[in-house]
Write a protein that binds this DNA or RNA. Structure first.
Lengths: 217, 217, 217, 217
DNA sequence: TAGTAAACGAGACGGTACGTCCGGTCTTCTG
DNA sequence: CAGAAGACCGGACGTACCGTCTCGTTTACTA
């Protein structure tokens, strides 16, 4: 969680600025993000109020606006922290690894703060490029590490061939990420059906079969 | 679109009710839904206001509330109409059919009123079961017809075996729907990358390979 | 109190406008002005809050802002009503009439809502011409009637000569008004000393002696 | 102006306290009072903010609060300085002396910082006794010297009889002060009419005639 | 053809949240 | 230790929408 002071002006680098004046309270950041998640659970995105978040965090509204420009940015940061706990333990085979990550991802999506927060900011991002970028860097790119690790682990095991063509590798890489993340999200949020072991096994079977013969073009 | 008067009290059936009094203007419904889509394009879900929709539609706020209970329900109905134009022309092979529907689906998602409207109501539905149900019946179930038709068409062509076990058939049916819809949505809204012919071909290859050996278990 | 709807766009004339829509609640106006005076008593001008006034009046803040542009205008109207109760009963002689009006005027100024309200809006009016105008028409001009009546009554009694030169009459008229009102206000608000019968008698003696020989020039 | 450091804890007198540490900047006091008057001119009392005063004075808010308890007290001190420049040059006759002081007093009231500052603190003082006391000692009592001097000068010239009864003398003294100050203030701030030589002459005539026969009771 | 009942436009209503601003206090670093 | 800087809490500001309500008006069907 070493996410930098959220609203800091991009990059922020090291301690150059804060020479004068009272420094910002470090505790406030954590309290605000925690309060945001708590409010998301109880109220959902649309009924969530910055005044209410400030109240829960024991902080003045001013403090909140000093650090985040608005509700969307705050929610992105609050939700991003949830996904940092995703890990990919080595279960011995590619199939088991995939099933594992699918179930863990679904477990996070089962939490109300993730469900409503994530979808709402994605919706907002359709008309706000800076917000989309914030989501991409804070959440999406951050989790591609899981696909990356699973793949190289499988290559070490010999379950997948090494990448001959780096360009094609990239393409299949992005494809897999979209298929895995998209399918799980759709199943759990839109179809509103459980992502249980049965579904995970079926999905993994489909994906592995596709992967095996997919070298595409 | 023969969608029934939206806020009508479920069922409704034959014209038993409207015995006397001025009937509801049929034009108003269409004007309101069109105005809603227009406002979604310009403002996105969160900045869209019902007062503004009423103004654009040349209608009083009262009229709007007489027909829909709130913003979410209105947006669901406005967006649902967009998806009714999805068709599945017979392109001669299962692969071509899948590529076709993926591209058409992506084309709809490329329209701003669909992007922000759809994701926003999905987000809202995480804490509102009746809204989720409305989405399911108005949008999701409605489009499963495409998968159903593509599948039976492929079975007629002999590209897919007939369903031996109806229970397993249902499972694979839902799985395919989530994979197709979820992957396209994730690619276009979250990854913010284009769903072009290259991607559609790659995705179709992966899916078909998986389908071939999927009955697994 | 036939004071017109306060925020009405100047003049307003008769009932031409309110053809459409729900009409404004007449009761709300009275409740708001009463609540304003109540709050002035308890809090004074600077601690008085429009939100608090709305709360006391059992009215939404919006309603308040729909009728008055701001705190100053509201307070002017609330205070103006207080001065409408000033009367000038005929006590038989000019001296007795003056003493009477001085005491009644002082009695109004002794009420906290008048003290702090009046001075505060006068202070604000030093940088706001429209506010000064509002004070002039709503309060000052309104009360000149007292001087006018007292004077003509005295002329009828033969205590004062009839006005030969109307221009000089105007000048002495304004002078008397400023001297009476200014002295009483200064005594009671700045010097913070009581305007009792003794003071009223002394002041009246001074004024009458001055009046007798004042036509000067 | 040798007014002592305003917020100093009453009395204190000689340099007993400031034994060690950095001494308070003497320049800061003057800068703050000047900035206050400047802000009063531009903004009026209600829009004047302490943060803005500190900024104009080139001083931190902390420094300001160390010396004055709040906005009202600061404004009283800033306005009080303005009235110290009132003098009463000997113009040879009582009538000329009165006309002179009336015009000079009006000239000060014509300055925006005096107009809005003075009336605003008077308004505030209606619910704050300590503020009223501060106004009385800093402004009102201070200027009674003018009436005192004019009166004894007139007695020396033989224009007024010596005071036989000291109690009655006091009463007429206060009365004259309220009439002069009150009339000028009311004419210039409430009636918003000019206090020019014509008005000053009319007013003086009225006052002198009243004074001549006023020994009251 | 008249009556009647509902839908309609307009807009005021009580509320809630917004994002900003200011008042006073506090905490840090510099002189 | 005074002072500059600025973050902090609290709370009012004036605005924008919400969803409801009350009007006067219009438009069909029914009697």
């Amino acid at each position: 969680m070493p996410r930098p002071t959220p609203a800091s002006p991009a990059g922020r680098a090291g301690a150059g600025r804060p020479r004068n004046g009272r420094p910002r309270s470090a505790a406030a950041d954590a309290a605000i993000l925690a309060a945001t998640r708590e409010a998301l659970v109880e109220l959902g995105w649309s009924r969530l109020t910055l005044g209410d978040v400030a109240l829960r965090a024991g902080v003045a509204k001013t403090t909140l606006y000093r650090r985040w420009p608005g509700k969307n940015e705050l929610v992105v940061d609050a939700v991003a922290e949830l996904f940092d706990e995703l890990e990919l333990p080595d279960r011995g085979s590619l199939a088991a690894d995939i099933e594992g990550v699918v179930l863990r991802f679904a477990a996070i999506l089962a939490r109300p703060e993730a469900r409503s927060g994530l979808m709402a900011v994605v919706a907002e991002s359709t008309l706000d490029d800076s917000l989309r970028e914030r989501i991409r860097t804070s959440i999406v790119e951050r989790q591609k590490r899981l696909v990356r690790e699973g793949k190289s682990r499988a290559q070490r095991r010999g379950e997948l061939p090494p990448d001959p063509d780096p360009e094609a590798a990239d393409r299949s890489f992005d494809l897999i990420f979209d298929v895995v993340a998209g399918s799980v999200v759709h199943r759990s949020l839109v179809s509103a059906a459980p992502v249980d072991e049965t579904w995970a096994r079926d999905f993994t079977a489909l994906l592995l079969a596709g992967l095996g013969s997919a070298p595409a073009r």
